[in-house]
């Protein structure tokens, strides 16, 4: 698994950019940075980005990954866009609750719920 391969599966659904993570574990610093850069590129492609991050494949993430999500949130907000998270494993959701990041992010159970929440 080289770092040059994309760590994301990206699909444009109407105005919404849907992103799925390839990796089950978002732990390694290099991968986290790469994910941050790739998502930043997607944000910059749109004037007011509507971005949905699906965690359906993800079993583990670290506090460094949370940091990258916060940076993504700030970049989307700066451009007047909207960010949604979905399909978060219950154990990882617990991490969001413990860190109070469930208050910062708009989290939905599934992609359908997240898609219908975009204004």
């Amino acid at each position: 698994m080289g770092v040059d391969e994309s760590r994301l599966r990206v699909k444009l659904q109407g105005e919404v950019t849907q992103v799925e993570f390839v990796d089950r574990n978002i732990l390694d610093e290099g991968f986290i940075q790469q994910i941050g850069h790739e998502i930043d590129d997607l944000i910059q492609e749109h004037e007011q980005p509507k971005l949905l991050l699906s965690f359906s494949n993800v079993d583990h993430l670290s506090s460094a990954a949370l940091g990258t999500l916060i940076t993504i949130h700030q970049k989307v907000k700066e451009k007047g866009g909207q960010l949604r998270l979905s399909d978060i494993d219950p154990q990882i959701h617990e991490v969001f609750i413990i860190t109070k990041l469930d208050k910062l992010f708009e989290i939905h159970d599934d992609v359908d719920g997240a898609m219908s929440s975009f204004a």
Binding site: S62, S63, A64, L66, G67, T68, I70, T71, H73, Q74, V95, I98, T99, K100, L101, K103, L104
Partner: peptide
């Protein structure tokens, strides 16, 4: 404290808290 309102959007500083939790 990463849970303090003013620190909630800082991108780092959660590792130790998670270990303790």
């Amino acid at each position: 404290d990463p849970l303090a309102e003013e620190n909630l959007e800082l991108p780092s500083g959660r590792g130790l808290m998670l270990m303790r939790q």
